[in-house]
Amino acid sequence: MKCDEIQDILFDYMTRELGPAQSELVREHLRKCDRCRAAAAELQATLAALRDAARDRAGIPEHLSEKRRRRVRRALVHPVIAWLERHHAAVSIGVAVLVILIVFVYSRAKTAWSYRVPPGIPVKVLERGTEGSRDE
């Protein structure tokens, strides 16, 4: 195998993704080739630095907080309440729109009601010329 081909699979080799035959090829090549050995050393150092960084657990919670754990449990036991909780923004907007709609429809109905023609009072229709005098 050529150096380029070896270097393309160095990371696979180091993280045990190669089969035994290919691993042996890489090992054999690294024994003889300074250039690839240097590339492997650099990659190994980067890998070691990352693995060291992986030990850093600052800012990484170990468990779900009590609040989240309760929410998750509620979703299991009371899925509808949990859904409302999770979509509280959309639910609040929906409720607000509904309230506005109800108030609007109600006030329109009320206005119409107050201008209604009361029942029992006949609507007087003046007909021209049927009576002697006309209001001017």
């Binding site: 070691a48 990352l50 060291d52 960084a53 030990r55 850093d56 600052a58």
Partner: peptide, 21 residues
């Protein structure tokens, strides 16, 4: 910088690698 406790020391290389990531 997060408080990692007194005995936890991250190597410079690790800090640099995490930053590069």
């Amino acid at each position: 910088p997060p408080d990692r406790g007194p005995e936890f020391a991250l190597s410079d290389a690790a800090v640099r690698a995490a930053e590069a990531l």
